[in-house]
Design a binder for these strands. Structure first.
Lengths: 337, 337
DNA sequence: TTGTAAGCGTTATCAG
DNA sequence: CTGATAACGCTTACAA
């Protein structure tokens, strides 16, 4: 394999001259530089990033963590969408993307160590158990990082607007005449808490009381759990006329339960999802759901991280909130009041 | 940051002793080895992969190419499933996973150069334009590689069983009494050709003639195109009573066209998809479709590549075919004969 | 069983 | 404008 030394020999110059020419260093005659570049091309020179990183301490490689605690990981459309746009943005800035895990066989069982081991310039924590000490260790380290949907002190975060999400949903339901609005939510992650408080607050803002029985815990991405919760809601003496689900996928479990109960959607009961996955647009009736802008979220995360890496002084720590939008489907009935 | 030298100093031994101890080299007294390991832990030592790779020429990093020519890339459930299981398998073997692209800003516009640049031990080509010179360049290089759903000479490949797929579909339709079976297929990739020839052959095996008008080209993952093709089929004087689609997602376009034509599924016309994405199980009627085992495909690809890397001598070049299965949904009518 | 020393390919400092 | 040289952190003959 051709290396700098070979080029130097071929051109009759020193290795440092070659290095400078290849890196566009200005204090070199344009003529020599051109000669070197030409030779490099002819010899099929490919730089060796490992040698470079060793010397410069800059890898132009960012780590990404996609380890759904519920193990759905990349299979979740929300996350694969985010990954896809992280990749696009990173590559267009000259950065590579490597997965970081906490169980790389025989190397390390810590995110931090893994990232250090590979010399990542920074890490995006997209999906992980944010409460785990391993994540905290990484976040509190000297490695620049950006989190998605979770805020750590003194670190930038990209937030899907869960507050607006529930607000817009509840408001939409209210405007359509609904008052008895139940909320089946996922496990108590930060995301979930945000949605929950937004739900309560918005309800309150409309002067609506929330009976305790109207709020049920299920699990994200687990249709069965939401199906169970749905049955419980249906068993109430004063049952809701509207149910908000943790996500579109979970809503499928709800739909099954509703069908079993012989209820028509939306005539007998209205339902709303969250995420806006493809499926939500193709189901009949089309889902009314809050669409998360995963593309923008991924892009922003990569952008912010790279900014933090390249301009540590001027880059601000900030929480960037990415708004989504309400997809008006056919699962909510407009009640005549 | 702690390095080998620091450990050596702390233990009063040489750096080579430390290196040996940390790498489990046998010709070292157990006592020294233990002392060194203890010190390494206390000092929070983290190895530097770049230095290691530079010296050993083994990165324990595999590259993956996920660049759908149709740009759907990772958003396609089939591919995100594959990626997920590649990642799992690689990590459990102590390998990292890095995306390789042909447009990494300012570094390189060639897969091969990119992979060399990062020192990848091998590359999995999961999704790319296999005909492009850039892919060929990589495949023909000295870098070990495994492809998915496409065979190159002298390289291992993992193949979703497209032959069995169409065979099983046609057979199932035949068994259910269908004779007029149309096939809307995707663009003419290798995958598509395999399905097409299997379709023709199986039809022939059952003594069925395929009218030219029964075979239409549309595009993978583009519902609209399949919708158009569906309309053309419906316009035939002797229209098919059954349509096979390029994939589940495309079938949605077909369904829309059929609905517009006022046809009931499966009473008026039967349809079959391909892939077995989540959506196919939640749509009503549930899709009859051929499920591709993306998890097994990804796992096999990683496994085969690592085997090739670690045992270049004994590892065989082979095409591994991964069978899927027919998901019996409700979109095919059992015709009384 | 342990240590010495060379070298992996690159960049950066400093002298010419 | 160009070149010598040290250094990045590690592994590995080979020597002791």
């Amino acid at each position: 394999m051709t290396k700098i030394k070979d080029i130097a020999k071929a051109c009759g110059v020193s290795v440092s001259t070659v290095s400078k020419a290849l890196n566009g260093n200005s204090d070199l005659s344009e003529e020599t530089a051109a000669r070197v570049r030409k030779a490099a091309k002819e010899l099929g020179y490919i730089p060796n990033s490992n040698a470079r990183v060793l010397k410069t301490n800059r890898s132009h490689n960012i780590g990404v963590i996609f380890e759904d605690p519920t193990s759905s990981g990349l299979k979740h459309e929300y996350f694969s969408g985010i990954l896809n746009s992280i990749k696009d943005e990173a590559e267009s800035c000259g950065y590579d993307v490597t997965f970081i895990s906490n169980h790389l066989a025989s190397i390390s069982n810590s995110y931090y160590e893994h990232a250090r081991f590979r010399g990542c310039d920074g890490v995006i924590v997209a999906s992980a158990d944010f409460h785990s000490p391993k994540v905290v260790e990484l976040i509190e380290s000297e490695i620049p990082s950006v989190t998605i949907d979770y805020v750590f002190d003194n670190r930038s975060a990209i937030m899907s607007d869960n507050y607006a999400g529930l607000h817009d949903i509840v408001q939409y339901l209210y405007m359509n005449g609904h008052r008895k609005i139940a909320f089946i939510h996922g496990e108590m992650t930060a995301v979930c808490q945000k949605r929950l408080s937004s739900y309560y607050k918005t309800m309150e803002g409309f002067g609506l009381k929330v009976p305790d029985e109207y709020v049920k815990q299920a699990f994200f991405h687990l249709p069965k759990a939401s199906g169970e919760a749905t049955k419980e809601l249906l068993a109430l003496t004063d049952r809701p006329d509207c149910i908000i689900y943790p996500d579109d996928y979970s809503m499928l479990g709800g739909i099954t339960a509703l069908e079993e109960a012989g209820l028509e959607i939306p005539d007998d009961i209205s339902i709303v999802g969250y995420d806006g996955i493809q499926l939500s647009r193709f189901m009949r009736p089309v889902f009314t759901t809050y669409v998360q802008d995963s593309e923008k979220i991924g892009k922003s995360a990569a952008h912010k991280l790279i900014e933090t890496i390249e301009s540590p002084r001027t880059s601000q720590v900030e929480q960037i909130t990415i708004k989504g939008w309400l997809q008006e489907g056919k699962t909510v009935k407009a009640l005549i009041r």
